[in-house]
C-alpha cells in the first residue's frame, strides 16, 4: 500500500515524533518514578488515564484510517505462553525499576540517575534475551501459538463494538478515580 511520504522521509520524521512522545511522557508525569510505582499501589492513576485515553483516541483514529485504506495493522503474534510469562516478568521489573522502557529513557533526560543505571540493566537484559533466544523460541514461544489474532475476529464483536465497550469501561473507571482520588477535600468542605 502507498503512504503519502517516502520511507526515507518517514525515517527522519521519527526524530520529531519521538520528541513529541518524550515531551508528552514527561509533561504527563509518567517519567516520574513515584507516579509509576504508585499506579501499581493504586494511589495514583495517571498511568491508567494516559494509557486508556491514548488507546481510545488512537484506536478510533487508526480504525478510520484503516477502513479508508490509509493504514495497515501491525499485529504482534499471540504466542500466549510467551506473552503471559513476558508480561509477568515485565510487571515485576517495572515495579523494581520504576519505569517502563520508554518512560525510563524519558526519565534519563530529567536527571534521574537510577533511570540511567536501569537503562544499562535493560541493555544487559536485551543481551540475555538474545543469548537465550533459541531456547525460548523452541520451548516457550511454540506453546499456545494463536497467531496474529485480533479481538473482533476472535469474538465476533465488531471493532466499533469493542471501542464502545472500552469507552464505557474507561468512563466508569475515570469517574470512579476522579470521585475517589482527585477531590477528597471538596467533599468534606463544600
Amino acid at each position: 500500500m502507498d503512504f503519502p511520504i517516502s520511507a526515507e522521509t518517514a525515517r527522519w520524521l521519527a526524530i520529531p515524533m519521538g520528541m513529541v512522545f518524550g515531551l508528552l511522557l514527561h509533561r504527563g508525569g509518567v517519567a516520574d518514578y513515584n507516579v509509576i510505582v504508585n499506579q501499581f499501589r493504586f494511589r495514583d492513576f495517571t498511568v491508567l488515564k494516559v494509557m486508556l485515553t491514548a488507546i481510545l483516541v488512537g484506536g478510533v483514529g487508526v480504525l478510520i484510517l484503516k477502513t479508508g485504506g490509509h493504514a495497515e495493522y501491525h499485529i504482534k503474534p499471540a504466542n500466549m505462553l510467551g506473552v503471559v510469562l513476558g508480561a509477568t516478568l515485565f510487571g515485576i521489573g517495572m515495579v523494581l525499576y520504576g519505569y517502563c522502557p520508554g518512560t525510563g529513557v524519558a526519565a534519563m533526560a530529567t536527571g534521574s540517575l537510577h533511570a540511567v543505571v536501569g537503562f544499562f540493566g535493560m541493555l544487559l537484559g536485551g543481551v540475555a534475551y538474545a543469548l537465550s533466544f533459541t531456547w525460548v523460541e523452541a520451548h516457550i514461544q511454540s506453546v499456545a501459538k494463536l497467531g496474529k489474532v485480533r479481538l473482533p475476529e476472535l469474538t465476533g464483536v465488531p471493532d466499533w463494538g469493542w471501542f464502545l465497550i472500552l469507552a464505557a469501561i474507561a468512563a466508569v473507571v475515570f469517574w470512579l478515580i476522579e470521585r475517589r482520588f482527585e477531590r477528597p477535600k471538596a467533599g468534606s468542605k463544600p
Partner: peptide, 16 residues
C-alpha cells in the same frame, strides 16, 4: 533499578 531494568527488558522481548 539495574536488576529491574534487566528483568523488564527480558520480559518485553519474550512478550514481543
Amino acid at each position: 533499578a539495574f536488576v529491574g531494568g534487566g528483568i523488564i527488558m527480558f520480559g518485553a522481548r519474550m512478550a514481543g
